[in-house]
Design a protein around this nucleic acid. Sequence first.
DNA 1: TTAAGTGCAAAATCTTTGCAAATGT
DNA 2: ACATTTGCAAAGATTTTGCACTTAA
Lengths: 143, 143
Amino acid sequence: MSHHLKELLRNFGLKVTEARLQVLQVLINSDEALSHSDIQERMDDAQLDKVTLYRTLSAFEEKGLAHKVATEDLNWRYAVHLEHSENGEPDEQHAHFVCNKCDRIYCFPVEGEDNVVTIQQKEGFVIKEQEIRLHGLCPDCKT
Amino acid sequence: MSHHLKELLRNFGLKVTEARLQVLQVLINSDEALSHSDIQERMDDAQLDKVTLYRTLSAFEEKGLAHKVATEDLNWRYAVHLEHSENGEPDEQHAHFVCNKCDRIYCFPVEGEDNVVTIQQKEGFVIKEQEIRLHGLCPDCKT
DNA sequence: TTAAGTGCAAAATCTTTGCAAATGT
DNA sequence: ACATTTGCAAAGATTTTGCACTTAA
């Protein structure tokens, strides 16, 4: 399994290092996008220097291993997108659920053409990607 | 017209001050959501202290005169939403266009029920609001 | 061996807080 | 006159940069 992670890093043109393995592990174990501090908290054993974490995350992002989303609390949250492995292209449509209370982000499945929004086209704008953001309460916060 | 602005501030329970009139003027004149620094740039004549600007924007936001959106460059952008004046409730659906190049945000019209996205409901999540984000190139950047 | 990644300290940003002076009602 | 708002300075928080040391290929 650590084997799997190493291969993944190599596939994205990243050198295999301890720091990257650990951060990748944390990201993969999570079903939600994680902020810088979320990740730090989940590495309580082998603490990384925060600068290294910043750089690790940018490296993931540049190579397309992870993507980042800006949240309502003005922090980047990172999530790995393994489906991108093939061509390096991002999906054309994302759906993210943002919890109003705890600010966590979850990726939601968007399946089928029916879900494409038909916004009135505005003259002069080139639309490349649609992102749907759902705001509300996540299971942990809804009670 | 300055008359109009004063009335607007009062309607939202805000004292009328020079700083607020100016910031409101700038926001209203714009068809896109503006960041803190965007606003500063557009007030080159009568410069406000930046702390005052922060506080002015929070005041607008708290009272519901403006709403803020987190952008891909990790800055808040503010826009006035005059339609909200009536009940203070935000719209249930927003559409924002985010330019990939210059990070500007434009509000897009969403008209009619047809445009509501039908995402597969996930167990345990309470969805309160849908926001649609379109990413691409704005007229200024598309060439 | 050699280019890339890491950690520390320090700089640069960005945002918030405290408080005295100024302003609006 | 009194509560709010403003501006300045200074504190906090977050992110980036520089550079010597270490590590992966």
